[in-house]
Amino acid sequence: MTGTKTENRLLDVKGLTVEIETRSGPAVIVDGIDLHVDRGETLGVVGESGCGKSLTMLSLMRLLPNKIHVAKGEAHFDGRDLQKMSNRELRKVRGGDIGFVFQDPMTSLNPVMRIGEQLAEPLIYHRGMSKKEARARAVELLRLVGIPGPEQRIEAYPHELSGGMRQRVMIAIGLACEPKLLIADEPTTALDVTIQAQIVDLVKGLREKLGMSVVWITHDLALIAGLVDRVIVLYAGTVVEDAPVDELYAHPRHPYTRGLLASIPKLSDQPASRLNSIGGTPPEPGRRPQGCPFAPRCPLAMDICRTHVPKLEPVAAAGSHRTACFAAEKAREAA
């Protein structure tokens, strides 16, 4: 599944660095990230909130908010560098080749536009469909994402649908032009637990049906266990671990990953106890420690961690498993 041949690479990001302008000069938010997604692969991107997951994905599409920009790096999609494309070319990719599903279905749909029209918009723009064709396709898409009564439902406004239904609509919009890659940014965070599982199942089914690649961003490792092929763990804008999903669950190497796994709530836990096993919070942009960004919170931190930055390196004897930690071996022994 995780082939490494270049023609199998759909998305290949190298050294992506994102900065924010602050009063005291630029501060790094995303620090030279490498990541790749193969055709047909589903990649999970995991990390606490504020680790730079969203900005990484938004920067690929050049959708960064004010005062935040890509300082360096390349992002090749289907062989072309997204950072160097003209705006016109990029617009074709957005929505056409890469579909996006945002976190909050309540605010990511235009409140004054019927959902049928919002579905039709990319079809008219990217596929040159007539209004009528687009409308028929919109009905099909709503049916595809499991919305009952799609013929009537295309007339509804976003506020007339429940959160789960709206997220299905968002997914339908993201899929409208049958993109090669679907990027879902915490698509279930705003939803009830039961609905979360339904959305995961939905995307799982659609991925197989449409043969697309998926990047699924989440802070919830448990949710995506059955969905993704590979996981990268982000901390403070750097990749700290990259491994096939089973390998990651069985042998997590980075102390941060281990903390995330340990903090998956058991049924007996109070919701508030999540992430309690890692004290503290990720560093603010511009306040990153000198050495390993995780050092201030790391139970295994050594002297070298405070002076040197660990590189993302393959873990011995496990080809596609990489981690950035001076104590990776120790972590394995502890596991």
Partner: peptide, 10 residues
């Protein structure tokens, strides 16, 4: 967010 979403649709 719906403005960003619209931009993400190209």
């Amino acid at each position: 967010p719906y403005i960003t979403a619209a931009q993400a649709l190209g």
